[in-house]
Amino acid sequence: MTLTTADAVTFHPTSPTFHHLGGLMSRMTGAEKHGPAASSTLDVLWVLYDRVLRVTPETAEDQERDRFLLSKGHGPMAYYAVLAAKGFIAAELLDTFGRYDSPLGHHPDRTLVPGVEIGSGSLGHGLPLGVGTALGLRAQGLLDPAVWVLIGDAELDEGSNHEAIAYAGAAGLERLHTVVIDNQSATHGWYGGIASHFATAGWSTVTVDGRDHGALFEAFTRPHPGRPHAVVAVVEPKN
């Protein structure tokens, strides 16, 4: 996806749209090597935060909030842009991205950035943390909050994710959701495709165009009683 500043010169926090994100992302420089990693997640992040996740800046500490865990933490520019569009952080803060005195590092830090649930960037940890989060919520009797984890297809090369997928399916973690950004950067791959790997472990699965907002929303909100849910969002191959 090519990001431009068209339709995003002026940012209005009270009425954000997807078209604002290009301008917001253009304010962050210094991590261009991770540009494709960031832009590959932009549509998924927007649909989640705009139409699915039940969390706002005002409810970011509420026990009943939905949890979003960004495991694909390298190249977080799209994540920061969406957080700014939704009012979690000031848009002006984006101009400080990557500076030594900025809270917006090249990997997100949960202790520094409002709305960020986990520190991430070392690949393969987000989904296991999501499993633990879903288990913890269930143990506390908090059965309504949803847990969403965004991972990249290359993260599935990590053994920790295979264990998390197997356990979540066996435990029937219905409130756990995983979105896999498939930009064909995985080293190994799976017979039958990514979705088949989750389905074999007992997950509900769907594969969609990762740039189609309507298809993403339908996939994110598809019922999956008694099972965790995986959405494979296919985007253009990483160059």
Rank of each mutant, 00 (worst) to 15 (best):
M28D: 06
E92K: 08
G152N: 01
S122H: 15
A201G: 07
E236H: 13
V234P: 03
E117A: 05
E58W: 04
T56F: 06
R27C: 10
G226L: 00
A170T: 12
F198T: 12
I181N: 15
G210V: 02
F68N: 00
G121V: 08
G189N: 11
E32W: 03
R67K: 10
G30W: 12
G226C: 02
A78W: 11
D109M: 03
T14Q: 13
S120V: 03
G152C: 04
V55F: 00
G23F: 04
R67Q: 11
T41P: 00
G193S: 13
P225N: 03
V180H: 04
I181Q: 14
V113A: 07
A233W: 05
E92L: 00
H197V: 13
T59A: 02
H19G: 06
L127E: 12
E174R: 13
G136R: 12
E218L: 12
D50I: 12
V131C: 11
N183F: 08
F97H: 01
P114L: 04
A166S: 15
A6E: 14
G119F: 02
G172T: 05
G121S: 08
F220R: 01
F18S: 07
E92D: 14
Y79W: 11
D212N: 14
R54N: 09
A186T: 11
D157S: 13
L156Q: 14
T207L: 00
A164F: 06
N183Y: 09
A154L: 13
L123N: 10
L21F: 07
I165C: 13
T41L: 02
R65M: 05
K72V: 01
L127Y: 14
G226N: 02
I194G: 01
L129R: 02
S204G: 14
R67N: 03
T41E: 11
S102A: 11
L127Q: 13
L93Y: 03
T205Q: 00
T29R: 15
H229M: 10
A90N: 04
I89A: 00
Q184C: 07
K33W: 01
H224F: 01
F97L: 01
H19W: 12
F68T: 01
N239M: 09
E174S: 14
S122F: 02
A201Q: 15
G172S: 05
L137T: 03
A134H: 04
E174Y: 07
H12A: 11
A38G: 10
